[in-house]
Nucleic acid binder design. Sequence first.
RNA 1: GCCUGUAUAGCUCAGUCGGUAGAGCACUUCGUUGGUAACGAAGAGGUCACCAGUUCAAGUCUGGUUGCAGGCUCCA
Length: 588
Amino acid sequence: MHMKALYNDGSVAEVEADEARHVIRHSAAHIMAQAIKRLYPEADFAYGPATDNGFYYDVDLGDKKISEDDLPAIEAEMKKIVKENLKFQVFELPRDQAVALMEERGEKYKVEHIGDLDEDARITFYQQGDYIDMCVGPHLTYTKALKAFKLTGVSGAYWKNDASNKMLTRINGTAFATKDELEEHLRLLEEAKKRDHRRIGREMDLFMMRDEAPGFPFFLPNGMILKNTLLDYWREIHHEAGYVEISTPQIMNKQLWLTSGHWDHYKDNMYSTMIDDEEYCIKPMNCPGGVLVYSSKPHSYRELPIRAGEIGLVHRHELRGALHGLFRVRCFNQDDAHLFVTPEQLTDEIVGVVRLIDSVYQKFGFKYHVELSTRPDDSMGSDEDWAAAEEGLKVALDKLGMDYVVNEGDGAFYGPKIDFHLEDSLGRTWQCGTVQLDFQMPQNFNLTYVDADGEKKRPIMLHRVCFGSIERFIGILIEHFAGKFPVWLAPMQVKVLPVSEKSRDYAHEVTEQLEAAGIRVVCDDRDEKIGYKIREARGVDRVPYMLILGEKEVEAGNISVRDRTNETVPMGVDEFIAKVVEEIRTRA
RNA sequence: GCCUGUAUAGCUCAGUCGGUAGAGCACUUCGUUGGUAACGAAGAGGUCACCAGUUCAAGUCUGGUUGCAGGCUCCA
């Protein structure tokens, strides 16, 4: 799909594909702003960019409010503007005139924006009809080129993404080159909703949420199978990677959290309780416990690196507006580990951890992106330590040749981190794995090891998780597989479906044989028709294998195996058991 | 915490102008013995999230609280 785009130097060029889509969406944002301005003359616009999925504009409407009910009117006005086929024009102004123009038009956010621009920044404006917007473009050449768009919702967003600023009204929309593409996009969104882990979790009886405990998930028997199976896998690969496993207390006294720095930097997220008139905290992180284990006895350089894993249940008071299924909860299990290493071992250990995390994500076929998160405003420690720590992570990433984006100011309060982000069904990303480099905790707790020269030295501490939180990881897994887990993970691996009462005894026999082989099998011997049972096994249980057993199979002494491709093949029971057991063993 | 919505049966949803509730699926029972994505009938199931208010009367209107959804902020 070719189309023309107007650039801020006044030139016009052909654009296509992603670039064309971006131009369409960005122009849609301007046309929406023009429509809003016509309907709400007091509207004051902030930012209005194109995004990966559409576009939005943040607007300050003063005392007025816009809700979803108002969107059809705005859409209708946009259609009028499209029909008017206004020409997009571009012009540039020197700073003082740019400010004057925006002030004259009552655009105080744009004026502030100009103030934030570099001294030598070129300030360009795009105009269609009587609407003028400060913008770097490019844009469509005429409004009629906007052929397919839809406003999708209203939300709030802080000016400059800062919670201390005013909350503006964000109006979201999406636009495509053609109506067909728009329809397809909306259809895919509907499809994605069917993969929502909250919905599948309920359908498959994996977990549940209750109003009595917002943010605290309940795991049901099927969910526990999934969780425990993941943990078995986790223990196996960590044992192979030279990790030991520990477990540290849920509740430890406030003094510990003062020493670790959590009290000063993380107090608002911590739950606490009184025990015998002394204040105790419920752990929001596992590291202080891990540190206490390390510091409980002297260590030689010969013992390092120590890699101590812990499936640690942590509780954090998250803002209720942030809660989201299993993705954002108030208590979760971290597949944590703390590594105590010498400076010489540091890079290799980071590389080892990153490789381990990568191997886990490869196992499930996840695509992910990596971020290097640097020093936040609220942090502890010296500039030198932070610089060294950030450098340490960079060196490891470079050694691995990994692509990453830098996420300024998003590190933990005690150190910078490498974050691994996974996608959910809607393409939203969630941080799962992370590797954090920490010089602070060893200092705060005066951790040492005796080096070869007999001197006491300070170990460096690495915090790391692979899954991140088991809960979040399970949520991602559910959406990734749409509940159709590989055999080794499936809570129900085989469902035996007798066609009628006549084959019920045989079905029970086969079920027992599978059970004896360690296969998770359920026999649906209800008095229902075979089509009904298949429908439920497929659509609700999402079981990898169904065994259809009728008189034919009783006669032949074999089984009919139907897999997820809906192919049905006859097979001997022993042959099938061997196949499934092998798939489970190899985690195929 | 903030913005915009939203809350009726286990699930998905109807419920008009305010007159104390309905469907489909699921569940239970009975019949049915059925061969690859819904067998038939009957039954049971709701303090309409909660607390106030308006009204002769509230699922319905108003206010508040809580949960939930999509965002923002924050985060694994």
